[in-house]
Design a protein around this nucleic acid. Structure first.
Lengths: 336, 336
DNA sequence: CTGTTAGCGCTTTCAA
DNA sequence: TTGAAAGCGCTAACAG
């Protein structure tokens, strides 16, 4: 831990006025150039002069001033649910941050708590809000009142909304079933996490599993809770076996690991006794025993789409459909 | 993906002027009350009136205006290295965000790229910067020039700095050795990741392992790279066995999983043939085969300390030493 | 095509 | 103890 005191000669901040002076133009012109103001067309010479001055002075516009003036910042607020955030979280931050940065937007994450976050909203004046859960009526009212140009990307398709990620979640479940059935497993189980907070996801993924089972004329999946906090995951395995389940779809790779572990304590092994397929492809999935077959979401495509959606919504343009390309891919290893 | 258009009646934003009017005082008074201005003492009645008005109007101060005025925002910039961010990342975000929020500070993460981030610095005017790598001279100059009150919390202790996390990293390595030796393993190996970007950490943790080996009069650890991207981790295991290594410390849990997997392909099992101990206690560690013994950093304590350091540094107070309590704890399972 | 200018909402002297 | 007022740096009308 180290600290720097204030510099002795606190050189004043470089402002757009400095740039204007250096370039021999007015502040307005500087602003027009820097913002590619559509209403004003600036001759190339002037443009270059301004840009040069900017470079020479190392000028960076003050986000605060710009926000104050425009009434809206360049921040995009990502409101995460109250789930335990796992590997996926880092991935999202990483690529979404990059995708937004391209457009001059900065990602700010906020994890939902029981407390309302309307104050955050007003304090940040974000350019957009991305949510992974539907906002309740109260929250939506808040956002309207706060005059936040509001984009909601949600996992929940209960309302009439387009639903990129929702579709993806269902498709993930379908993909699991498809693979299992292709391998000849016809009586399926589903491994849910005990943590009730993850249920949003589950509902959707499980729903996809159910859909696909129904479509293929299979019995509905046997759902079992799998405790993530430790021991008795063998119970779930026994229950499946009792129902003659031969293949289980896990809500995510952690759950799959738990199932595999439960099987191990029972002296069973995958995929012979029970095939297991996960979701996420966490880094250690390849080191599972046996290496875990799983469905890997293509984060970069998803975040790219999210970023585009935000941009379009900010401009008031109609939102596009999710990309054609699958938002996930099957990674076949040995567990199924 | 759903979108809200602008509200029809865009009710103007609630400002401190509104609060002042509602409370029958001046804007200055509102400001004093809200900021607990030390130079001014406000009678309790006035205070209450203001606070009531704030609540009634649902007023939230504009971060932009405040920043513009004060020249510094309430943002704390966390500059992460260019490593692959794993499970730890989410943990840090989660608890550090909460710890800072208590003090009205908002955490913003920025992952280092080859490009400089000085523009970000000037744009955000953050209240502090937390770095997990030492900043180079250029960057430090930038920060001074940008007049950012600068706090550096670094993993690198090469310069004369206090080093909470550094000590912790070394201590983590020592802790691994301690446990292994207590269990009777005396010839040790060290599992490094192939990814060169993680080396910062490794150096420190490995250093701790070396120190402890030296202190106990053991031979230095046999270091082996472990490829995280797939297959041939068996080579490392063979190499260790050839050197009569009986216990290996892994740089993190993923590396430990890789080692365990390599052993499995060789028909070996832990801890009989080779004991393995990791770092991090990722959620799936308990489901490893065998369940992974590991050193778990106590994130909440670490982030609390980070938050406190930031606060103190912002106030110009001297920085305190890291907390007495160990910053990590041993989680004994079966692999070692 | 470029410049002048009026604020955005807040904090903080300075004066009352 | 409270109020009036001057900006912080920027953008966007409006003039020129």
């Amino acid at each position: 831990v180290a600290e720097h005191g204030e510099p002795e000669h606190r050189r004043a901040r470089v402002t757009s006025a400095d740039v204007a002076r250096e370039a021999g133009v007015s502040r307005a012109t500087v602003s027009y150039v820097l913002n590619d103001s559509p209403a004003h067309t600036i001759p190339e010479v002037t443009r270059r002069r301004v840009l040069d001055a900017v470079a020479r002075l190392g000028y960076a516009p003050s986000a605060a001033a710009r926000t104050l003036r425009r009434g809206r910042s360049d921040l995009v607020l990502f409101v995460t649910p109250d789930w335990p955030v796992g590997h996926t979280y880092g991935q999202i931050v990483e690529s979404l941050t990059a995708d937004l940065a391209v457009h001059g937007l900065t990602l700010v994450m906020h994890q939902r708590t029981p407390q309302p976050w309307s104050a955050l909203l007003r304090a940040l004046s974000p350019a957009a809000v991305i949510g992974v859960q539907a906002f309740d009526a109260d929250e939506e009212t808040q956002m309207r009142a706060a005059q936040v140009p509001l984009v909601t990307v949600t996992l929940d398709e209960t309302e009439r909304r387009a639903y990129a990620l929702t579709q993806s979640q269902r498709a993930v479940g379908r993909c699991q079933v498809e693979h299992l059935v292709a391998r000849g497993y016809r009586r399926l189980g589903y491994a849910w996490l005990t943590d009730p907070r993850v249920r949003t996801f589950d509902d959707l993924r499980l729903d996809g599993v159910r859909q696909e089972c129904a479509r293929l004329g299979l019995k509905p999946p046997v759902v079992q809770d799998v405790p993530i906090d430790g021991t008795p995951s063998a119970d779930a395995v026994r229950a499946w076996l009792a129902e003659e389940v031969t293949g289980v779809c896990a809500i995510n790779d952690e759950a799959a690991f738990a199932v595999l572990h439960g099987m191990r304590t029972l002296g069973l092994s995958a995929p012979e006794d029970l095939a297991v397929i996960g979701v996420d492809d966490i880094p250690v999935a390849q080191f599972a025993s046996p290496p875990l077959t799983t469905v890997a979401p293509k984060m970069s495509i998803i975040t790219r789409f999210l970023a585009t959606s935000v941009l379009r919504a900010m401009r008031g343009e109609p939102l596009t459909r999710p990309p054609r390309a699958d938002l996930h891919e099957l990674v076949v290893r040995e567990s199924a």
